[in-house]
Protein backbone atom coordinates (compact mmCIF):
# COMPACT_ATOMS: atom_id res chain seq x y z
CA UNK A 1 0.00 0.00 0.00
CA UNK A 2 1.56 3.31 -1.01
CA UNK A 3 1.75 6.38 1.17
CA UNK A 4 -0.58 8.49 -0.93
CA UNK A 5 -3.36 5.94 -0.60
CA UNK A 6 -2.93 5.82 3.15
CA UNK A 7 -3.12 9.59 3.45
CA UNK A 8 -6.17 9.61 1.21
CA UNK A 9 -7.92 6.97 3.27
CA UNK A 10 -7.20 8.87 6.46
CA UNK A 11 -8.58 12.09 5.03
CA UNK A 12 -11.61 10.30 3.66
CA UNK A 13 -12.17 8.73 7.04
CA UNK A 14 -11.97 12.07 8.81
CA UNK A 15 -14.39 13.67 6.37
CA UNK A 16 -16.72 10.77 6.90
CA UNK A 17 -16.53 11.24 10.64
CA UNK A 18 -17.67 14.83 10.20
CA UNK A 19 -20.60 13.67 8.09
CA UNK A 20 -21.47 11.13 10.75
CA UNK A 21 -21.45 13.88 13.37
CA UNK A 22 -23.89 15.90 11.30
CA UNK A 23 -26.06 12.83 10.87
CA UNK A 24 -26.23 12.12 14.58
CA UNK A 25 -27.08 15.76 15.19
CA UNK A 26 -30.04 15.50 12.87
CA UNK A 27 -31.54 12.36 14.30
CA UNK A 28 -31.00 13.20 17.93
CA UNK A 29 -34.67 13.56 18.73
CA UNK A 30 -34.89 12.30 22.26
CA UNK A 31 -32.09 9.77 22.27
CA UNK A 32 -28.64 11.00 23.08
CA UNK A 33 -25.85 8.79 21.88
CA UNK A 34 -22.75 9.35 23.95
CA UNK A 35 -20.20 9.17 21.19
CA UNK A 36 -20.06 9.86 17.48
CA UNK A 37 -19.80 6.76 15.34
CA UNK A 38 -16.12 5.97 15.00
CA UNK A 39 -15.93 5.99 11.22
CA UNK A 40 -12.14 6.02 11.26
CA UNK A 41 -11.93 2.74 13.19
CA UNK A 42 -14.80 1.03 11.36
CA UNK A 43 -13.31 1.90 7.97
CA UNK A 44 -9.73 0.88 8.83
CA UNK A 45 -8.79 -2.06 6.66
CA UNK A 46 -6.16 -3.69 8.77
CA UNK A 47 -6.28 -5.02 12.27
CA UNK A 48 -3.64 -2.79 13.88
CA UNK A 49 -5.10 0.43 12.49
CA UNK A 50 -8.62 -0.61 13.46
CA UNK A 51 -7.54 -1.33 17.03
CA UNK A 52 -5.49 1.85 17.28
CA UNK A 53 -8.27 4.03 15.86
CA UNK A 54 -10.76 2.46 18.26
CA UNK A 55 -8.42 3.43 21.13
CA UNK A 56 -7.41 -0.15 21.85
CA UNK A 57 -3.80 0.37 20.74
CA UNK A 58 -1.03 -1.43 22.61
CA UNK A 59 -3.41 -4.00 24.07
CA UNK A 60 -1.70 -6.70 26.14
CA UNK A 61 -2.68 -10.37 25.83
CA UNK A 62 -4.63 -11.44 28.89
CA UNK A 63 -5.84 -14.85 30.00
CA UNK A 64 -8.45 -13.11 32.15
CA UNK A 65 -10.53 -12.55 29.04
CA UNK A 66 -12.64 -15.54 28.08
CA UNK A 67 -13.55 -15.53 24.39
CA UNK A 68 -15.99 -18.23 23.36
CA UNK A 69 -16.49 -18.86 19.66
CA UNK A 70 -16.86 -22.05 17.62
CA UNK A 71 -13.70 -23.78 16.34
CA UNK A 72 -15.45 -24.25 13.03
CA UNK A 73 -18.27 -22.05 11.77
CA UNK A 74 -20.25 -23.64 8.95
CA UNK A 75 -21.80 -20.31 8.05
CA UNK A 76 -19.62 -17.21 8.27
CA UNK A 77 -22.71 -14.99 8.11
CA UNK A 78 -23.71 -15.96 11.65
CA UNK A 79 -20.90 -16.73 14.07
CA UNK A 80 -21.82 -16.68 17.75
CA UNK A 81 -19.25 -14.95 19.96
CA UNK A 82 -19.35 -14.64 23.73
CA UNK A 83 -16.92 -12.57 25.80
CA UNK A 84 -16.44 -12.50 29.54
CA UNK A 85 -13.78 -10.24 31.02
CA UNK A 86 -12.48 -11.14 34.47
CA UNK A 87 -10.32 -8.03 34.59
CA UNK A 88 -11.52 -5.71 37.38
CA UNK A 89 -12.78 -2.33 36.20
CA UNK A 90 -13.69 -3.41 32.68
CA UNK A 91 -15.39 -0.50 30.93
CA UNK A 92 -15.63 -1.65 27.33
CA UNK A 93 -15.39 -4.68 25.08
CA UNK A 94 -14.69 -4.52 21.34
CA UNK A 95 -14.70 -7.24 18.68
CA UNK A 96 -12.52 -7.53 15.60
CA UNK A 97 -12.19 -10.08 12.79
CA UNK A 98 -8.66 -9.90 11.43
CA UNK A 99 -9.36 -10.97 7.84
CA UNK A 100 -12.61 -9.14 7.24
CA UNK A 101 -12.25 -6.28 4.76
CA UNK A 102 -12.97 -3.94 7.68
CA UNK A 103 -11.83 -5.77 10.83
CA UNK A 104 -13.74 -3.77 13.43
CA UNK A 105 -17.08 -5.35 14.27
CA UNK A 106 -18.44 -3.57 17.32
CA UNK A 107 -17.51 -1.67 20.47
CA UNK A 108 -19.64 -2.06 23.59
CA UNK A 109 -19.29 0.43 26.43
CA UNK A 110 -20.34 -1.10 29.72
CA UNK A 111 -20.88 1.36 32.58
CA UNK A 112 -20.31 0.09 36.11
CA UNK A 113 -23.34 -1.97 37.07
CA UNK A 114 -23.25 -3.86 33.79
CA UNK A 115 -21.44 -7.19 33.94
CA UNK A 116 -18.23 -7.34 31.84
CA UNK A 117 -19.93 -9.72 29.46
CA UNK A 118 -21.35 -9.54 25.97
CA UNK A 119 -22.70 -12.14 23.60
CA UNK A 120 -23.61 -11.51 19.98
CA UNK A 121 -23.40 -12.92 16.46
CA UNK A 122 -20.94 -11.64 13.89
CA UNK A 123 -20.06 -12.04 10.22
CA UNK A 124 -16.78 -13.52 9.01
CA UNK A 125 -15.73 -13.47 5.35
CA UNK A 126 -13.24 -16.31 5.77
CA UNK A 127 -11.24 -18.32 8.30
CA UNK A 128 -9.64 -15.78 10.61
CA UNK A 129 -8.58 -14.83 14.07
CA UNK A 130 -11.37 -13.28 16.08
CA UNK A 131 -9.90 -10.76 18.48
CA UNK A 132 -11.52 -9.19 21.49
CA UNK A 133 -10.16 -6.02 23.07
CA UNK A 134 -11.04 -4.94 26.59
CA UNK A 135 -10.42 -1.62 28.30
CA UNK A 136 -10.12 -1.79 32.08
CA UNK A 137 -8.82 0.91 34.37
CA UNK A 138 -7.63 2.90 31.36
CA UNK A 139 -5.48 0.03 30.05
CA UNK A 140 -6.07 -2.22 27.06
CA UNK A 141 -6.10 -6.00 27.02
CA UNK A 142 -6.77 -8.52 24.30
CA UNK A 143 -7.47 -12.15 23.60
CA UNK A 144 -7.73 -14.07 20.34
CA UNK A 145 -9.28 -17.24 18.94
CA UNK A 146 -9.15 -18.69 15.45
CA UNK A 147 -12.46 -19.62 13.85
CA UNK A 148 -12.45 -21.73 10.70
CA UNK A 149 -15.15 -20.69 8.27
CA UNK A 150 -16.45 -23.07 5.64
CA UNK A 151 -18.83 -20.62 3.92
CA UNK A 152 -17.99 -16.91 4.02
CA UNK A 153 -20.52 -14.38 5.19
CA UNK A 154 -19.37 -10.99 3.96
CA UNK A 155 -19.00 -11.26 0.21
CA UNK A 156 -22.00 -12.46 -1.76
Amino acid sequence: MNKFRRAFLKTAGAAGALLATAGVGLLKSGEVFAATWNKLAFSSNNMNDAMKNANYGGAVESKDIVLKAPDIAENGAVVPVEVTSNIPGTTSIALFVEKNQYPMVADFELPSGTEPYISTRIKMSQTSNVRVAVRAGGKNYTQVKEVKVTIGGCGG
Binding site: W37, Y102, A106, Y117, C154
Partner: peptide
Protein backbone atom coordinates in the same frame (compact mmCIF):
# COMPACT_ATOMS: atom_id res chain seq x y z
CA UNK B 1 -29.95 4.93 33.25
CA UNK B 2 -27.58 3.87 30.47
CA UNK B 3 -26.31 0.33 30.96
CA UNK B 4 -24.92 -0.38 27.49
CA UNK B 5 -23.70 2.00 24.79
CA UNK B 6 -22.52 0.31 21.64
CA UNK B 7 -21.24 1.24 18.22
CA UNK B 8 -21.64 -1.34 15.50
CA UNK B 9 -20.09 -1.80 12.09
CA UNK B 10 -21.22 -3.84 9.11
CA UNK B 11 -19.99 -7.16 10.50
CA UNK B 12 -22.68 -7.65 13.11
CA UNK B 13 -24.80 -10.49 11.75
CA UNK B 14 -28.17 -9.97 10.05
CA UNK B 15 -31.08 -9.83 12.50
CA UNK B 16 -28.72 -8.86 15.33
CA UNK B 17 -28.77 -10.67 18.63
CA UNK B 18 -27.20 -9.38 21.82
CA UNK B 19 -27.10 -10.70 25.34
CA UNK B 20 -25.86 -8.60 28.28
CA UNK B 21 -26.20 -8.69 32.04
CA UNK B 22 -27.11 -5.91 34.46
CA UNK B 23 -26.34 -6.07 38.17
Amino acid sequence: KTVLDAQWGIAVAKNPFINFKIK
